[in-house]
Write a protein that binds this DNA or RNA. Structure first.
Lengths: 334, 334
DNA sequence: TTGAAAGCGCTAACAC
DNA sequence: GTGTTAGCGCTTTCAA
């Protein structure tokens, strides 16, 4: 592989001149520039990113950390983040933690040693061990999808309160009056926000959501299954069920039918996320769509602004959800 | 961040000595070693990976390239690959191509400029533009999941012929005699291998699979949908359908039911992959499981051996599939 | 067993 | 506008 030296020799200039035409920041004589450019082309020279990185202390690399890579909501986010950073000329270093604090720690440490330009993080719980790592490190971090309670951390999220409202409003518009809800862990900020929004919408129609009609889960398939069992066993009467994410909604869907309920005939069901699983389900799931692509793009942009120390108007970006009506919700049966 | 110099000063040795205790390759006086180790601990020193990388021309980094990140089979593979390389002390640089040759090219180029230690690649088609990139680069590449026809490239795959056989055998054991198949692109090696295996199993029972009973797809949901339509519109009679991957099987499942067939009552259906979608489907999908975790682990290991230029017995690793019986297959109805 | 010194490939003063 | 030089933080001869 050709180095700057080779190019310099070939164009009969010093290596600093080569560096200058590449960085294109300091004026270079047009004639010399042409010579250098030809030399670059003919040698196929590409700057060595490690050498440059060592010098300028930036690796042209952004990191992303998620609890699980193959969970659809995360893999969707990863896909769009990769797309966004690659479009901005960066590469993506991906890490999964499996919830293991040691792996989280190793990831942060390794990335720091690599002069990473920034890290995008998605979290499971507000209690996360990650908090300390984030506070301790001096590379920019932006939280996506599942932010902490803390307002001071750069964040890109969907408007979860609004999402809850939309779920409520849709169900209400179908004539439902008896509701139930399967939530995520209630110590997660967004879970509470979603629930508050849902209640807010119901409240405007004079309907209160009893604590009894809520079951707490973990955004997993099993959460939906168990949620339905719990609700039914408690004897809660409902014609509309909102599971706070699609995967748990699918669990609920399957369990509901196993227990003899038709969806949406007897019970209308909706989810949140709009991951691929939601349209593949039968009945196809009515859901609230997360603007994944926009979240990813905004996160990448925010992160890189942060790493360039540009001054930022707002480090907390909130994006709007949208309603996707499919087959799992319908008018209340009389 | 502390550098070697800081440690050296503190331990009152030269930086080469520090380097030696870290690399642990050249004998160091036990006393000095202890002093250095204490200095390392107290400064919290961690080697700078860019500097070391520049020097030894290795970044402690492995790359992975897939066509789409959020397709479940890929994200599953990514998760396990990340796990494997991280356990071996490496970080993972992930790239999606979206089928864009320019992105493939940029990815390879960037990684080379980073002194990547190796690249794991999963392909869509044997015709891929990637072929040339792989041949041109001098960093080790191992192909997983969807190998080329070419025998000379390091590869880790499931035994696809055997997988096809297992699908056939299972269906046969249920008494089926009329078969159909939804394949992936037939210019992909593994697609042909799967089909050959399937035919082989049927052949042993004296059953031939007519070309008419085969529809070619692209491993996508829509492939299953269209496959069923094609088969039905052609008037093909079958009681057992094998879709060569789970996602297309789910498409087939949904379409079959839309057109009034019960699964497995009228038609037994099976897939291949055993991704999470397969057990979430209703009826839960009988499928052939890819040993994803083992594939990922073997690929990581092979790749790193290659990069260390160890001599390798066999650069083509074949892993065995397994049958997972769930609800979508049943005895043929009389 | 240890230290001095060169150099990986680049950028950024600084001098001309 | 261009060249010389120092140095980013590390590994690795080469001498001692």
């Amino acid at each position: 592989m050709a180095s700057m030296k080779d190019v310099a020799r070939m164009a009969d200039v010093s290596i600093s001149t080569v560096s200058r035409v590449i960085s294109n920041t300091i004026p270079v004589d047009p004639g010399t520039r042409r010579r250098v450019e030809r030399a670059i082309k003919s040698t196929g020279y590409k700057p060595n990113l490690m050498a440059r990185g060592l010098r300028i202390k930036s690796a042209n690399l952004v990191g992303m950390l998620v609890p699980e890579i193959r969970t659809t909501s995360f893999s969707t986010l990863i896909e769009f983040v990769e797309e966004s950073v690659e479009a901005l000329g960066y590469n993506l270093l991906l890490g999964g933690t499996g919830g293991d604090p040691d792996r989280e720690e190793r990831f942060f440490e390794n990335l720091t040693r690599r002069h990473i330009d920034g890290i995008i993080v998605s979290l499971v719980s507000d209690r996360s061990h990650l908090m300390r790592l984030i506070d301790r490190t001096d590379v920019p971090v932006v939280i996506v999808d599942r932010p902490f309670d803390r307002k001071d951390l750069p964040t890109v999220v969907m408007d979860n309160f609004r999402a809850g409202q939309m779920a409520g409003e849709h169900l209400l518009s179908l004539g439902h009056e008896k509701f139930a809800c399967v939530t995520g862990d209630r110590d997660i900020t967004i879970v509470r926000a979603r629930l508050d929004g849902f209640r807010d919408a119901l409240g405007k129609s004079g309907i209160a959501l009893d604590e009894n009609a809520i079951t707490e889960g973990h955004f997993q398939y099993e959460s939906g299954v168990k949620g339905v069992d719990t609700l039914l066993d408690r004897g809660v009467k409902f014609t509309a069920l909102w599971a706070q994410n699609d995967i748990s909604a699918i669990g609920a869907l399957n369990r509901l039918r196993e227990r003899g309920y038709r969806v949406p005939g007897d019970i209308s069901l909706m989810g949140l996320d709009n991951v691929d699983d939601s349209w593949m389900a039968r009945p196809a799931l009515t859901t609230i769509a997360q603007p994944y692509k926009e979240i990813a793009a905004a996160a990448a942009e925010l992160l890189l602004k942060l790493s360039r120390k540009e001054d930022i108007e707002e480090t907390r970006i909130v994006l709007q959800p949208s309603l996707v009506i499919r087959e799992s919700t319908g008018p209340v049966s009389s």
